[in-house]
């Protein structure tokens, strides 16, 4: 073609084909709520990474003069102190490290394993599907707490054990959802057409099935991240999660809930961070789902 196509603004567009991802990114950029959510998440992540440089006090420094002190900008306790006299600002940011890491890593683990496993089971069907889904059923019936306690007994308390434990449990839901979606898709005509054009099974799963199930998968991931963060705080609350003086939002919130009558800020700040993070994740997930649907352009 000799004429370069022009868009509405008269700007020359590249003649290259737009992939699903390029056009999805463009659509995502136009979604204000999603971009807002993304920016907030980036800010929180940046704060967590830069925590030692921006907080005035170390997160495990105990100040005997300032036990349960309210927020005060003058002495650097921006969020006040906890019942042990430690800087809540620093602790909230350090907690963000653990919570975000657990949330993101465990979700990615569950996403990768769950989508692959579910798509393969749903696509192959028959006996393979039966065996694969019975394995999922068996893992489902394994009591989660028992599993975590077993892991901690054998390997000691370790943050990576939490990833393993949560990831090992969360992918089961994902696998079931993906399997169901795949089975519904499998009999659609375009999958049959792909067969008729001689595409191999791995190519069909990769090119035709997975892009078509990204919508529900994306929504489920945004639900998984908060769930995982809360699960971690539950484990920490029981003393199976992160070890003092390290902390997470879950630990801070459970401590804060204990002290909320005398020191409401110790609940308010970590809870606000958690809530804002979850909100942002939901907006971003919603935006991603819309962006990945070509019909929504």
């Amino acid at each position: 073609m000799s004429v370069t196509p022009l868009d509405a603004a008269g700007v020359a567009m590249p003649a290259q084909g737009t992939s699903l991802w390029t056009s999805a990114r463009r659509r995502l950029m136009r979604n204000r709520a999603a971009m807002g959510g993304l920016i907030v998440l980036i800010i929180i992540a940046a704060l967590a990474i830069l925590a030692p440089y921006i907080s005035a006090h170390a997160m495990d420094d105990i100040s005997w003069e300032d036990i349960g002190a309210p927020p005060d900008w003058a002495n650097g306790y921006y969020f006040g102190t906890d019942s042990n006299g430690r800087d809540l600002f620093a602790r909230t940011l350090y907690g963000a490290r653990v919570s975000l890491m657990v949330g993101v890593l465990a979700s990615i683990v569950s996403l990768v394993i769950g989508v692959t496993y579910g798509a393969v089971a749903g696509y192959l069907g028959g006996a393979v599907d039966n065996v694969m889904m019975r394995i999922v059923d068996i893992l489902y019936s394994l009591p989660f707490m028992f599993f975590v306690i077993l892991l901690t007994v054998f390997f000691g308390r370790n943050i990576f054990l939490i990833f393993v434990a949560i990831g090992a449990v969360e992918w089961l839901d994902m696998a079931r959802i993906v399997r169901g979606q795949t089975m519904a898709l499998k009999h659609r005509e375009f999958i049959e057409a792909a067969h008729a054009f001689g595409a191999s099974s791995p190519a069909i799963v990769r090119r035709h099935i997975i892009p078509n199930i990204l919508g529900p998968v994306m929504v489920f991931v945004t639900l998984t991240v908060p769930k995982v963060i809360l699960l971690e705080s539950f484990l920490s609350f029981l003393g199976l999660g992160v070890q003092e003086p390290m902390t997470s939002w879950g630990v801070l919130i459970s401590d804060g809930a204990r002290d909320m009558e005398t020191a409401p800020w110790s609940l308010l700040f970590p809870a606000t961070f958690l809530a804002v993070t979850l909100f942002s994740l939901n907006f971003l997930g919603d935006g991603l789902r819309d962006a990945l649907d070509p019909k929504d352009r």
């Binding site: 375009f190 049959e192 057409a193 892009p211 078509n212």
Partner: peptide, 17 residues
């Protein structure tokens, strides 16, 4: 050997150009 399907609405993958 190629095949053309009955319903062009469903025989193309909606997620690929």
């Amino acid at each position: 050997m190629a095949m053309i399907f009955q319903d062009p609405m469903t025989a193309l993958n909606p997620y690929l150009t």
